[in-house]
């Protein structure tokens, strides 16, 4: 195992361009789990990003919030300005525990690409964009288009996440719901983020598909004002958007049923087409 302790983001990008298989590490809360037995990871070369102060900023611009790649959950929870994007601190407060929130980064959550990620749905529901950087340039990818399949990202091997840009829009409806196996410090079994703004409805599901996913069929159903009179009335749209599985934490049947009920109860007060 060899470690590069980058001292500037440009240096980090150079290292990543030269050896694209290095493992970038920010808060380490995904990478270090069960570390003594993580033999494959221990064979790799590592690139430490944690000291790059130029990545730890949070900027509020007139119509966008920029989260540097080292911005943590705790940074957002503490920062009163996020009242403008309440689902971000709400989601952050459900991630692991305090000790995870102080170290875990939003960018790490995106790059780790877990279907159960909680930061990702909150960002996705606000139409966040991922700023990617490499020695050959910068580009921006909508988070909703960032995942192609289980742990498959729209990022080239030489690219690093530099920041996350979240549009600041007024919303008249926002909700984040997480169902875990216990009240705190739990991995999501069923999760959703829902928001409405001038840009329309956004519905994002986590732990319901191989990736966190924007549910466009459900969004169209709600947008179109089609009547829904029970949770079951959402099932065909849910099945078009996601495909939950049985795993060690829950069952497909549970996930589907609970997702339908939560979404129904969430939208009931907000949509006149729901009864």
């Amino acid at each position: 195992m060899r470690v590069d302790l980058a001292t500037s983001f440009e240096e980090a990008l150079r290292i990543k361009a030269e050896r694209s298989d290095v493992v970038p590490v920010a808060g380490g809360t995904d990478l270090l789990v069960h570390w003594p037995d993580a033999h494959a990871l221990q064979e790799r070369d590592w690139l430490d990003l944690s000291a790059l102060t130029e990545l730890s900023h949070i900027h509020f611009e007139p119509d966008t919030v920029v989260l540097g790649a080292l911005a943590t959950y705790w940074d957002v929870i503490q920062d009163q300005r996020f009242r403008a994007l309440p689902l971000l601190p709400a989601a952050a407060a459900t991630v692991g525990s305090l000790q995870i929130q102080t170290r875990g980064t939003w960018a790490g959550n995106i790059a780790n690409a877990s279907p159960a990620a909680d930061g990702v749905p909150a960002l996705m529901v606000y139409d966040a964009e991922v700023q990617l950087a490499s020695t050959s340039g910068r580009r921006s990818v909508p988070l909703a288009d960032f995942y192609h399949g289980y742990k498959q990202l729209e990022a080239r091997p030489e690219e690093l996440i530099e920041s996350i840009r979240v549009p600041l829009r007024p919303h008249d409806f926002e909700n984040f719901t997480k169902v875990g196996s216990r009240a705190a410090q739990a991995i999501t079994k069923v999760g959703m983020a829902v928001a409405h703004s001038a840009a329309g409805w956004r519905i994002v599901a986590n732990s319901m598909a191989p990736t966190v996913r924007r549910c466009r069929t459900l969004e169209r159903l709600v947008e179109s004002g089609g009547t829904v009179d029970s949770p079951d009335g959402l099932l065909s749209a849910i099945r078009a958007d996601v495909n939950p599985i049985d795993d060690i934490r829950s069952t497909a049947a549970y996930r589907e049923r609970v997702f339908s009920r939560l979404l129904y109860q969430t939208l009931l007060p907000a949509c006149s087409s729901f009864s």
Partner: peptide, 24 residues
Amino acid sequence: GECGACTVHLDGVPVNSCLVPAWQ
């Protein structure tokens, strides 16, 4: 990272020291 028995303060905030590479 689940149990918190390894909690220390890093730059003044609680973190799980089992998830921190020493060089960080």
